[in-house]
Design a protein around this nucleic acid. Structure first.
Length: 265
DNA sequence: ACTAATGTTGTAGG
DNA sequence: GCCTACAACATTAG
């Protein structure tokens, strides 16, 4: 569910309710979402004030300061079905509750693929954020890799933030076949891919992200960008460019949508 | 009833 | 290092 545009939308809708708030206490109940000592994690985040909320790739990073001024970062990854809700009700899929000095923040996650962690090392291993990534940097990175373009773009240590939907959409916009070898994509096309990624992410954010089944922002609202998808979820339907049917294949275990005519190998 | 598929990532093995 | 397959979990569609 949540790729860069969805996570960005969550961060933006979360910020007004969270910045400056003090976390009085917290409770975690899932051994999957919060592996290890859940009480210890609750203790770490309690009695701290939210200084800032950031995002890197698909990770939500909440900077917390203690009364003494020492700071730390709470990292939340939404996995496939994670939600952060400011005005939710507690249900069977609520695995985290933050008591704020004003209001509550709930973490819900049906499949429990998401993670709530304190200063996790894996955030440091991420590649550069896909949004705002420089053209030269991107082309330089692409040139060095011999793997297929789609699995490469999904690799968060290469570039952070793209998921299955936006990779398919970006490759379509750039006219690149998902199995193309990264290093053999010629410079003009690579530049086109860079532009496609930037335009696509900005447009998707402007529409509040894509809601395919579960995704909602921190206030429970669905996104609207799913209505503007050109290939994702459109198997058999006509290509918006040439009319030939959108095809679906499996690449790296992921369903992959593309137009065989507009995206030549 | 049973199987496959779903937007995520980490790990194991070649 | 790279690539593939699989596993983690719950729900839904066919």
């Amino acid at each position: 569910m949540p790729e860069l545009p969805e996570v960005e939308t969550v961060v933006r809708t979360l910020a007004p309710a969270l910045i400056g708030r003090r976390i009085e206490s917290a409770r975690f109940t899932s051994r999957f979402v919060t592996p290890g000592n859940r009480d210890k994690l609750a203790g770490l985040v309690s009695s701290r004030t939210v200084r800032a909320i950031r995002r890197h790739g698909k990770f939500i990073l909440i900077e917390l300061a203690s009364d003494a001024g020492t700071s730390g970062t709470l990292s939340i990854h939404l996995g496939m079905t994670g939600k952060l809700l400011v005005n939710g009700t507690i249900g069977v899929h609520t695995h985290g509750v933050f008591q704020l000095d004003r209001g509550e923040l709930h973490y819900e996650d049906i499949r429990q693929f998401g993670r709530i962690e304190w200063d996790p090392a894996r955030v440091g291993k991420l590649g550069p954020d896909a949004l705002g990534l420089g053209l030269e940097v991107f082309c330089g990175l692409l040139r060095k890799r011999k793997s297929q373009i789609k699995p490469l773009l999904l690799n968060q240590t290469f570039v952070a933030g793209l998921g299955n939907i936006y990779v398919d959409e970006a490759l379509f916009r750039a006219g690149i076949h998902p199995l193309a070898i990264a290093s053999r994509v010629r410079a003009p096309r690579a530049a086109g891919l860079h532009e496609a990624i930037q335009d696509l992410l900005r447009l998707a954010i402007a529409h509040g992200g894509s809601s395919i089944s579960d995704y909602v922002d921190a206030e429970g609202r669905k996104g609207g960008f799913q209505n503007l998808h050109q290939v994702y979820g459109r198997e058999g339907q006509p290509c918006v460019q040439c009319g030939s049917p959108i095809r679906r294949i499996v690449v790296g275990q992921r369903g992959t949508h593309f137009c065989a005519k507009c995206q030549r190998r």
